[in-house]
Design a protein around this nucleic acid. Structure first.
Length: 427
RNA sequence: GGAGAGGUAGCAUAGUCCGGUCUAAUGCGCGCGCCUGGAGAGCGCGUGAGCCGAAAGGCUCCAUGGGUUCAAAUCCCAUCCUCUCCGCCA
């Protein structure tokens, strides 16, 4: 959500932000017009309410029966007028609130300008890509490696739940568990995050607060009976942890890390990434999240990216860091970086992390504030989220980067304490 | 799931029976000041959030949503949540 003052005072700046995102700037004017209507009607309603309040108190003190009855009759009439105006105000406010929820965050000035992902900027590469030619074999993709090793089962996943579901088996399931446990340990012990275990379903308002609703409704799984929604990312739950709270400055920054499964319908991506486990309806993720002051959010974003990079460095998997352009940053983000790992079996870069500074966008929606100092007026916090890291893709990268000529997979050194003695996954 | 009790501004409580200076009180906490060599204690003052308005000022919020009424923390209905007991259960 944007500050309505900004739309009132500098609508052109907001229109420009939408253009940079490749969105239609007309939305700004619709919101603006509704705001004007809303304030007009609000003043009308409040004037009537003030009158009613004043006279009602008077009636309470009146002794003269007839005069009292006359006043009551007057107020009865005023009450009807008021009810009609209130009804109109409710309608306008609902329309205003809904429209406003479709406005994305303003991109930060440092975010590169561009219409889509082709304008993203690779800011650095890390690690040497393995020279398979020199080793004398062709790397194969995980969708061949996995079934061959009997650690990945596509058919039975589809049997249970339909397309885009799969089964991890034996050392494959264990490897995923090892990666998750290891990442949580690094995040909590070395990077200063507090682990939280969260509900995997949340109420509708939480999705609105985090920015997934109303715009991305078609990507979410939803239990109609109880109006509970499956998390598309832990970010949704963590954002709302401090909903409607006023934090103190010395509590910030708050750093959270959570492991959750994530559920996405992916209807928009039908036909994309159909091979393998890169894009499924269910995946596991360890998510980093920060609540910060406005002054520190951009430096905290850098720190968060470094935290995610550290994991890949310890795993010794080559990756690159991509600075997202205005047309590719997420709906709520002002600035964002993706981490992409090298997947030699497919000769492709896979996104395993996206780190965003959402500034006060979610904080406004979820009403998360802090008091800069005792007695000061509450202000919105800044929030940041980033994967640290996302599962099946990291698993893909491990499988494909650590594969050997005989089709076995070496377990990365750092994961071995969780692998129960398995150093090499072989048939 | 059943029975009972409850949800009031950071926390704890009063107010609800019987609608009207409740414009929501009190204690704790917190902030500022006095006092002190310094701190504590003590004393004094202050202290919810949001919205509209150029300002004066006004409006909203007593779990949530409806309703009754000139007027609702207070009365009525529904829902949610918490606690106690019972039942069931991993």
């Amino acid at each position: 959500m944007l500050d309505i003052e900004l739309i009132r005072n500098d609508p052109e700046r907001v229109r420009e932000a939408l253009r940079k995102r490749n969105d239609d700037p007309a939305l700004v004017d619709e919101v603006y017009a509704l705001d004007v209507q809303r304030r007009e009607m609000l003043q009308k309603v409040e004037t009537l309410r003030a009158e009613r309040n004043r006279v009602s108190k008077e009636i309470g003190r009146m002794q003269d029966k007839d005069a009292r009855q006359a006043r009551i009759a007057e107020m009865r009439e005023l009450g009807e007028q008021l009810a009609a105006s209130e009804e109109k105000l409710r309608e306008i406010e609902a329309a205003f609130a809904e429209k406003q929820m479709w406005l994305p965050n303003l991109p930060h000035e440092s975010t590169p300008l561009g219409p889509d992902e082709s304008a993203n900027v690779v800011v650095r590469y890390w690690g040497e890509r393995r020279d398979f030619a020199a080793e004398g074999f062709e790397p194969i993709p995980h969708w061949d490696l996995g079934p061959e090793l009997d650690i990945l089962d596509f058919e039975r996943g589809v049997k249970l739940s339909g397309s885009r579901f799969y089964i991890l088996k034996g050392a494959g399931a264990r490897l995923q568990r090892a990666v998750i446990f290891w990442m949580l340990d690094v995040q909590t012990r070395q990077n200063g995050y507090t682990e939280v275990y969260l509900p995997f379903v949340v109420k509708r308002e939480m999705l609105v607060g985090a920015g997934q609703l109303p715009k991305f409704e078609n990507n979410l799984y939803h239990d109609v009976e109880d109006d509970l929604w499956l998390l598309p990312t832990a970010e949704v739950a963590i954002t709302n942890l401090h909903r409607d709270e006023i934090l103190t400055a010395d509590q910030l920054p708050l750093n959270y890390v959570a492991y959750t499964p994530c559920f996405r319908r992916e209807k928009m991506s039908a036909g994309r990434d159909v091979r393998g486990i890169k894009r499924g309806h269910q995946f596991d993720k360890v998510e980093m999240y920060k609540f910060t002051t406005p002054e520190t959010s951009f430096s905290e974003l850098e720190a968060m990216v470094k935290n995610a990079e550290g994991l890949l460095q310890m795993l010794e998997i080559p990756y690159r860091v991509v600075e997202l352009c205005t047309g590719d940053i997420s709906f709520g983000a002002a600035k964002g970086f993706d981490l992409e790992v090298w997947a030699p079996g497919q000769d492709a870069w896979l996104e395993v992390s996206s780190c965003s500074n959402v500034t006060d966008f979610q904080a406004r929606r979820a009403n998360i504030r802090y008091r800069p100092e005792p007695g000061a007026k509450p202000q919105f916090v800044h929030t940041l989220n980033g994967s640290g890291l996302a599962m099946p893709r990291l698993l893909i990268a491990i499988m494909e980067n650590y594969q050997q000529a005989d089709g076995s997979i070496v377990v990365p050194e750092v994961l071995r304490p969780w692998m129960g003695g398995i150093d090499v996954i072989r048939r």
